[in-house]
Amino acid sequence: MKNITNQLNYRNKQKEMERMKMAKKGTQKETKVEGIEYIFQHPGLLESIRMRDRSKNEGGSMNEENLYKELMEHVIFLKEGGKVTFDHFEEHEGFKDVIKEAIAFTFR
Rank of each mutant, 00 (worst) to 15 (best):
K2Y: 05
I4T: 09
I4A: 14
T5N: 04
N6F: 00
N6A: 01
N9P: 02
Y10F: 14
R11L: 08
R11D: 00
R11F: 02
K13N: 05
Q14V: 14
Q14R: 15
E16K: 04
E16W: 05
R19P: 03
M20H: 01
M20R: 08
K21Q: 03
M22F: 01
M22T: 04
A23I: 00
K24A: 11
K24W: 03
K25L: 09
K25T: 10
K25E: 07
G26K: 04
T27V: 06
Q28D: 07
Q28I: 15
V33E: 14
G35D: 06
G35I: 00
G35W: 02
I36K: 03
I36T: 05
I39P: 04
F40L: 15
Q41M: 13
H42V: 04
P43M: 12
L45F: 01
L45H: 11
L46H: 09
L46Y: 08
S48E: 06
S48N: 09
I49H: 11
R50P: 01
R50G: 06
R52E: 13
R52V: 09
D53N: 08
D53C: 06
R54H: 14
K56F: 06
K56Y: 09
K56Q: 12
N57I: 10
E58Y: 15
E58T: 15
G59I: 13
G59D: 15
G60C: 08
G60P: 09
S61D: 05
S61V: 08
S61A: 08
M62N: 15
N63C: 01
E64Q: 08
E65T: 06
E65W: 03
N66M: 02
L67H: 08
Y68N: 06
K69A: 03
E70Q: 10
E70D: 08
M72F: 06
E73Y: 02
V75A: 14
I76W: 00
I76S: 05
I76D: 00
F77V: 02
L78M: 01
K79P: 02
E80W: 03
E80K: 13
E80M: 09
K83H: 03
V84P: 09
T85Q: 02
D87W: 14
H88Q: 04
F89I: 01
F89S: 01
E91Q: 12
E91R: 05
H92E: 11
E93I: 09
F95C: 09
F95M: 11
K96T: 00
E101K: 12
I103D: 10
A104K: 15
F105D: 15
F105V: 15
T106A: 11
F107G: 13
F107R: 12
R108P: 11
R108E: 13
